[in-house]
Design a protein around this nucleic acid. Structure first.
Lengths: 152, 152
DNA sequence: CAACGTATGTCAGAATCCTGACATGAGTCA
DNA sequence: TGACTCATGTCAGGATTCTGACATACGTTG
């Protein structure tokens, strides 16, 4: 024992381990994405748009866990470089639905291969049961954390 | 199904879920730490120092998952405000071992209460077996991610 | 119809963090 | 002893993200 009950034992804290795992995953993704000139948020945005075309800036921000302001600067760059298109005028309200261009789709295809290899590596050594167990546990954590957020 | 095999199904991706959980945890910690005028990295630094007194700037950076440059600016601020002390001269080499001051220890005590409540909330609804299962699975993920990092 | 609350897109400024670089000191090896 | 490698602390610059704020548009509620 290297400590004496002063605080939270980091060696046994699930929270710390969660941060560590997330950090390792992000680092691994950055490593394989860097040769493609793409950041994690960049990739997340493209992946989200591929699966749910027409997502708005704010929705993309929530999906990528950044603020809508941050996502907006990214979207403007992606639009400028021809990876994404947004209508000049909102079809309804102020919401501008974004969509991938063919170029964006090609770019995403490359990135997906790289990211998939990371995910496969992360899952190596885990049985199917462990994977679905991890899935349930993580969903449980998220739910619990968001629950008490405003409840008390 | 909202997509057609274009990429990685985010709804089923453990990586995405990991990021989501980590994001929720960070948000919850920021929320309880904000009234104390403390950031997550700030708290992490104090907690690390409490458990392992004499840690160097670089070691603290690794433990808090930031660069040593970022940790250095934080340490300088903590030192300026009297939460941490570092010797003016390195006892050996260039490594400056940092230690909490009584004030730092008091500050940490407040923060620990807040953070512990978050951790307890996160673990709510999880059995002991699930918790230790999650522990092993996360450790497994981290190991797998770091393993293949330079192996190939 | 009008007022209210909510959500969105956007702008401006600041804070945070990172990349790159340098000099210094310890350890290793010939 | 001398050269090499590695890790550390630190400085400067740039990139990314966040906080705060504003106007606009929708839905609800009276």
């Amino acid at each position: 024992m290297s400590q004496s009950g002063v605080g939270i034992d980091l060696d046994k804290s699930l929270g710390y381990l969660l941060k560590e795992a997330s950090s390792a995953l992000r680092a691994a993704m950055e490593e394989v994405l860097r040769p493609l000139g793409m950041s994690v948020t960049h990739y997340s945005c493209l992946e989200l748009l591929a699966q749910r075309p027409g997502l708005s800036n704010s929705e993309l921000a929530r999906g990528a866990f950044v603020t809508r302001q941050s996502m907006n600067v990214l979207l403007q760059a992606l639009e400028r470089d021809g990876y994404v298109t947004r209508p000049a005028e909102a079809p309804v309200g102020k919401v501008l639905p974004a969509r991938l261009t063919p170029r964006g789709r090609r770019s995403l295809a490359e990135a997906t291969v790289a990211v998939r290899s990371v995910e496969v590596r992360m899952l190596a050594g885990m049985t199917e049961a462990e994977q679905s167990g991890a899935f349930l546990i993580l969903r449980n954590m998220i739910h619990s954390l968001r629950d008490g957020n405003d409840g008390t």
